[in-house]
Amino acid sequence: MMDATMNTTADQTTDSSHNGKANARSYRGGAVLTLVFAALALALAVPRLISALHAVAVQETVTALNAGNIPTAGALVDAVEELAVAARWSGGSDYQLDRGLVLLKQGLATSDPNEQADLLAAAEQATADGLAAGPGEPGAWARLAWLRFQRGNKDGAVAALRLSFLSGAFVPVLMPSRLELALALRSAMDDEMLSLLRRQIRLAWVTSPDFVAKLAERPGVGPLVRNALAELSEQEVARHLELHGPRR
């Protein structure tokens, strides 16, 4: 009887020892995995942190530009440099798009034609790079269209303007400038793009009928505006009346 008890105790002791070793290995394995995931998380977080630190240093400049104000020349230079570093550490689109905006403002501010050409080319490249990473930005597509137009690339400008229309058809703050650019590019447009242009005229008429009326007074533009307004939907007319009331 004692032998059986001793054997049972020995078996339990062996099992307990084996389970303890297995639990220890399991714990060590879990700890290693935790450390690996922590290292991966840190590796992913560090570039974002570096990007943010560089971008925050020039946030005031970018905010001023978006508000329509022009910072000092030195502030623009600093912003271009800081945003370039931020973009290198980040795979997102915002820093490149902001850098494109700053470069554009630099180009418009200089009186040196060679320097202006270089800055606008750099602005075009930065904007294109940003849109490659984040294409859902109608304002940035409109900027790219204008930059390409300024550099004589009408087909490229039309292609960018098309994506601006498609990614944000109704953006009131963009509509006047986009229509002005679209009118300058009409000769390079195909039927699809002309259809999108007529739609933009209708949408602009809904919110800004006086602007569209002035467009119609320009030589060669009146027929385009009349054709666009002839395609007004009931919903567009109803929205126009809701905003402006019946014209007398």
Rank of each mutant, 00 (worst) to 15 (best):
L97F: 02
P219S: 14
L163N: 09
Q116F: 09
P223D: 04
R239W: 13
G91F: 12
K105P: 00
A160C: 09
L108Y: 07
S177N: 15
L120S: 05
W89K: 05
V171H: 10
R143L: 05
T34K: 08
H18F: 15
D15Q: 14
G136E: 13
T207N: 13
A75L: 02
T110A: 13
I201N: 04
V77A: 11
E137V: 06
A121P: 02
T61W: 00
W205P: 07
G168T: 04
L232H: 04
S233C: 11
H244F: 10
L232A: 08
A67R: 10
L120P: 00
T207Y: 04
V212I: 14
M175Q: 14
A79Y: 02
A86F: 01
A182P: 01
A160R: 13
R239N: 13
L144P: 03
Q96L: 15
A10P: 03
A160L: 14
E60R: 13
A188Y: 08
V46M: 06
A133M: 05
A188T: 05
I201L: 14
A213F: 10
V62R: 00
N227Y: 10
Y27C: 07
P223L: 11
M175Y: 06
L196A: 07
L243F: 05
A31C: 05
G156P: 12
Q12A: 15
E137C: 03
A182L: 14
S17G: 08
L179F: 14
A230S: 12
K21D: 14
S93A: 14
T14R: 15
D94K: 03
L196V: 10
E192Q: 11
N7G: 11
L65D: 01
S208C: 07
M1V: 11
S208T: 10
E231F: 12
V85T: 10
L185H: 09
D118A: 15
R247H: 15
R25P: 04
A128T: 04
S17Y: 11
F211S: 07
V85A: 09
A121V: 09
L76F: 08
F211N: 09
A145W: 01
S93K: 05
A238K: 13
L203P: 00
V171W: 08
L101D: 02
L97H: 02
G92H: 02
E180I: 12
V58N: 00
T72P: 03
K154D: 15
S16T: 12
R178W: 05
I201M: 15
S195K: 04
E231P: 05
E82T: 02
R25M: 12
G29Q: 08
E231K: 14
Q125D: 11
S111Y: 08
P113G: 08
G107F: 01
G136P: 00
R162F: 08
L131E: 06
Q106E: 07
G245K: 09
E236L: 13
K105E: 11
T207K: 05
V102E: 00
G139Q: 03
E115P: 03
A86L: 02
L161G: 11
A117H: 06
L40G: 09
A145P: 07
A182C: 10
